[in-house]
Simulated assay, not measured.
Amino acid sequence: MAALPEVRLPPLRPHDGAGLEPEGDYDGLEFTDADFVGQDARGARFLDCALRRCALDETRLGRARISDSVLDGVRGVGTDLAEASLRDVEVRDARLGGTQLHGAVLERVLIRGGKIDYLNLRNAKLKDVTFEDCVLSEADFGGAVLERVDFRGCALRRADFTGARMADVDLRAVTELDIARGLERLSGAVISPSQLLDLAPAFAAQIGVRVEAPPE
C-alpha cells in the first residue's frame, strides 16, 4: 500500500499578487485565484504552500520543486512540469489537460478527485503515489517506474504503460480499467478477478491466442 503524504501546512501568508519567476523561492505562501497563465517559473521552489483555484495554462514549471504543499482546484491546459520534483504533495479536484510531467519524480503524492486528460508521465518515477476518485484519460506512463502506486475509485481510460516497470501497483479498485498499450507491462501489478475477466481478450490477443466459439 502506498504511503500517503502528511501535509500539515503552517499559518500561510497571502501571496502579494506578483507573477512567478524562474528559480523563484516561495515558502509558506497561499496563492488564491491567481492567474499564472503563460508565466515562466522554471526551477522555482515551493515549500509549505497552497495553490487554490489557480490558472496554470501553459505555465512553465519545468524542474520546479514542490514540497509539503497543496494544489486545490487548480486548472489549466499545457502546464509544463517536466523533470519537476513533487514530494509530500496533495492535488485536489484538479482540472488539467496535457500536463507535462515527463521525467518528473513524484514521492508521497495524493491526487484526489478531478479530471486530468493526456497526462504525460513518460520516464517519470512514482513512489508512494495514490490516485483517488479521479478520471485519468489517455495517461501516458511510457517508460515510467511505478513503485507502491495505488489507484482507488479511479477511471483509467486508454492508459499507455509501454515500457513501464511496476512494483506493488494496486489496480483492484479502479472503476474503469482501459489499457490501450503496454498490457504486457502489468507484471508487478495486482488486479481483481473481475478485471482479469474484462482483460482476458486483450491478454489472449497479446500472446496470439484466438478465442472462438466451438463448432456446432
Rank of each mutant, 00 (worst) to 15 (best):
A3D: 14
P11L: 07
R13E: 15
G17L: 04
G17Q: 05
A18E: 10
G19M: 14
P22M: 12
E23L: 15
G24Y: 11
Y26Q: 07
D27A: 10
G28D: 00
L29Q: 03
E30V: 09
F31P: 06
D35K: 07
Q39K: 12
L47V: 15
R52S: 10
C54Y: 02
A55V: 08
R60A: 07
R60I: 07
A64W: 03
R65G: 05
R65K: 03
D72P: 04
G76I: 07
G76A: 10
E83I: 03
S85L: 13
L86V: 07
D88V: 05
V91N: 12
V91W: 06
R92G: 12
D93Q: 12
A94F: 11
R95D: 13
G103F: 11
R122I: 12
N123P: 07
A124E: 04
L126K: 08
F131A: 09
F131L: 08
E132A: 09
V135M: 02
S137E: 06
E138C: 13
E138N: 13
G142K: 05
A144E: 00
D150Y: 02
R152G: 01
C154G: 00
L156R: 04
R157I: 11
A167M: 02
V174K: 01
V174F: 00
L177G: 03
D178L: 05
L186I: 15
S187T: 00
V190N: 02
I191S: 06
Q195R: 14
L196S: 13
L199N: 04
E212I: 00
